[in-house]
Simulated scan of single mutants.
Amino acid sequence: MSIRAVVLTEPDTPPVLRAFEVPVLEDGAVLLETIASEVCGTDVHLHHGHLSGVPYPIIPGHVSVGRVLQVKGDVRDVEGAAITKGEIVTFLDVHRTCGRCWYCQVAKASTRCPERRVYGITYSANEGLLGGWSERILLLPGVHIIKLPPSLPADVFMAGGCGLPTALHAVQRGDITFGDTVVVQGAGPVGLCSIALAQLQGASQIIAIGGPPHRLAIARTFGADLTIDIAEHSPEERFRMVRDATGGRGADVTIEATGVPAAVTEGMRLTRDAGTFVVVGQYTDHGTVSFNPHLDLNRPHLQVRGCWGSDLGHVYRAVRTMARHAERFPWRSMINGRYPLEQADQALLAAERQESIKALILPNGPLA
């Protein structure tokens, strides 16, 4: 028996299907039958070689859900429960965080650990089935596994995908509290999830800035009180609309989730004096912007906080939060593309063109 997986051999080349041998599990390892793996902006960046240190060829897919096929030894989830055959699980894509370095121990910022490896991004296909665009996923010893509660269907969790723990991290960085007005720049998965989580965190008014119109329509169903289409309103008009909606002050908290550098300067100016601005969308280098350090930062007494990646706590809390609110928000409305392995190139193109909000790779056929 062989296992099929999608491989990106090098940047800017079409993905190919390759056959892999069934892995022999070492003690502490788990083999999953892949139920679904996401296609996100990170995969588009990988396709075009926009991320440094990627060991091509790779099997993409860093957030996935699978069914346990095989367990070698005593393997437990993050709550200490034994992992058994047939269970539906997800896992933290970050692996081998050392726990010993200065960032892990002193700064408590494991997302900056220099030893960290990431499924679907920094593991080579030559190292095995270490990405989700594959019929099987090998979970190496030490991978953090989280069981999906019965109340959380696999496709609902995957609708959030990596966007939900990333948004959870951003909302935490913003210290959103009861009564806050929150501006969310961007209506992709991170932006939409940020809207839902800001509402759960107690925000009393949420303003979404982005596009196109169908994404803003979903933003309203997720709790946005006001949506502003960037194609219809200039930056000056957007500034006035936010000020008009906030008593002339601006947002208490603004979350940038666009990936567009110009949105950073705009977001600073949309935030009230002594407010908080969280930058989560600048995952890859799209260039520089300029701002006035006196007018945009110092005199407004602005707090600007970067937000990079997510850790086990963010993923665990994302699973628990989505399980509790699986029916409250229309999570599935974000999924508008489901692709078999053979159509991985179409999935990447749809993500790049922003035709899909969340596309899924289904290596073993449609979801039940």
Score class of each variant (00 low, 15 high):
Pro55Ala: 04
Val242Ser: 07
Val278Asn: 11
Ala219His: 04
Val253Gly: 10
Leu362Val: 01
Glu232Asn: 08
Val319Ile: 13
Ser333Ala: 15
Ala274Ser: 12
Arg272Leu: 08
Lys85Val: 12
Met241Phe: 11
Gly142Met: 07
Cys113Thr: 02
Gly99Tyr: 06
Pro57Trp: 04
His325Ala: 11
Pro57Cys: 11
Gly161Met: 00
Ala19Glu: 15
Val279Ile: 13
Leu200Asn: 05
Val183Asp: 10
Leu17Glu: 12
Pro340Gly: 11
Gly202Met: 05
Gly142Tyr: 02
Asn298Phe: 12
Gly86Ser: 06
Arg299Glu: 10
Gly160Arg: 02
Ile176Gly: 09
Gly275Asp: 03
Val16Cys: 08
Trp133Lys: 07
Leu25Tyr: 01
Glu256Gly: 09
Lys108Phe: 08
Thr221Tyr: 10
Ile209Ser: 04
Thr284Asp: 14
Glu135Pro: 05
Val260Trp: 10
Val171Arg: 00
Thr177Ser: 14
Arg100Leu: 12
Lys147Phe: 07
Leu129Ile: 08
Pro11Ala: 05
Leu148Glu: 06
Val94Ile: 14
His286Leu: 12
Thr246Asn: 02
Glu355Met: 09
His233Met: 02
Trp102Leu: 13
Leu341Ser: 07
Ser356Ala: 15
Ile88Arg: 12
Ala198Ser: 15
Asp155His: 14
Val65Glu: 01
Arg317Asn: 12
Thr34Trp: 02
Leu139Trp: 01
Gln185Pro: 00
Glu115Gly: 03
Leu197Asp: 01
Gly313Glu: 06
Asp12Ile: 06
Gly309Ser: 13
Gly53Val: 10
Ala81His: 14
Thr227Gly: 05
Pro55Val: 02
Glu33Cys: 07
Glu115Asn: 11
Ile146Met: 15
His169Asp: 02
Met1Val: 10
Val289Gln: 14
His45Arg: 04
Leu8Thr: 03
Leu362Lys: 08
Glu266Trp: 05
Gly306Arg: 12
Pro213Thr: 11
Val278Lys: 08
Asp155Thr: 09
Met334Glu: 08
Trp308His: 14
Val63Pro: 00
Leu92Tyr: 01
Gly248Met: 06
Leu226Thr: 10
Leu140Met: 15
His62Leu: 04
Pro363Cys: 09
Arg240Tyr: 11
Arg272Tyr: 06
Glu342Tyr: 09
Gly210Lys: 02
Gly163Trp: 06
Phe91Ser: 03
Glu342Asp: 15
Gln201His: 14
Arg136Gln: 09
Trp308Leu: 14
Thr13Ser: 15
Arg299Pro: 00
Glu33His: 06
Asp229Gly: 12
Phe277Asp: 00
Ile361Gln: 00
